[in-house]
């Protein structure tokens, strides 16, 4: 259900990535593509130079020479610039607090792509749609009471998805117990993607 302006969502669904548990196997990235855009399994996202997935993997090296890896995806921001900037109202909040795209209302102007500070949208070469988390496959899984594909595929239990409004949800519990951070908080987007950094 599309929320009207000023309306609060019933739930505040959030993604959690525990970087201290992650083994960088990439199973979540591949599970995401296989579930949401299987036709892209062997096609590259040219802009990123990697597999077309709603999860972007950034491999780098620290100043001390230690390899590090980060997974980034749609943060389902509570103050999302892609929602406020979309000229046609194609990008919207739903009742679960997720940022969604209505393909019928999208003309492919890519304003949502340049409006996102996290660079997590990619253009589907066939439909011209700016794709991102959550894809249709994962939304279908969630509708049936299952976890998204990335959470199910993770062998290290490093990923989770749940309601921040529910104090008993697994994500609320993890965020209470462990130290976490959000990306680019200074931009005021109020992201709901949490990176757990340790206990």
């Amino acid at each position: 259900m599309r929320l009207r302006k000023g309306q609060k969502p019933a739930k505040r669904m959030a993604h959690v990535w525990d970087s201290s548990r992650c083994i960088a196997c990439g199973a979540c990235v591949m599970a995401c593509t296989a579930t949401n855009s299987p036709e892209m399994m062997f096609r590259e996202e040219k802009g990123w130079g990697s597999v077309a997935s709603n999860i972007r993997r950034i491999d780098s090296v620290t100043r001390q020479g230690r390899p590090q890896m980060m997974l980034v995806q749609c943060q389902h921001c509570e103050n999302a610039p892609c929602v406020s900037n979309c000229p046609f109202g194609a990008v919207y909040y739903d009742n679960d607090g997720l940022v969604r795209l209505d393909p019928r209302m999208c003309a492919g102007c890519s304003y949502c792509v340049t409006s996102c500070p996290y660079n997590v949208r990619w253009f589907h070469p066939d439909s011209g749609l700016p794709k991102k988390c959550m894809g249709d496959g994962c939304l279908e899984l969630v509708k049936h009471g299952l976890k998204p594909a990335c959470v199910q595929a993770c062998p290290a239990m490093a990923r989770d998805y749940g309601d921040l409004n529910d104090p008993d949800s697994s994500v609320s519990e993890t965020l209470r117990r462990k130290r976490s951070r959000r990306l680019l908080e200074h931009t005021g987007t109020e992201p709901k993607y949490f990176i757990v950094e340790g206990s």
Binding site: C86, F88, R104, M105, C106, G108, C109, G128, L129
Partner: peptide, 22 residues
């Protein structure tokens, strides 16, 4: 430049009919 320019008439029509302007 629009990656879905063919959808523009539908988008504009839906916007006007629903009175939904951002």
């Amino acid at each position: 430049h629009l990656s879905r320019w063919w959808n523009l008439p539908v988008v504009v029509w839906t916007m006007v009919v629903n009175g939904h302007f951002n």
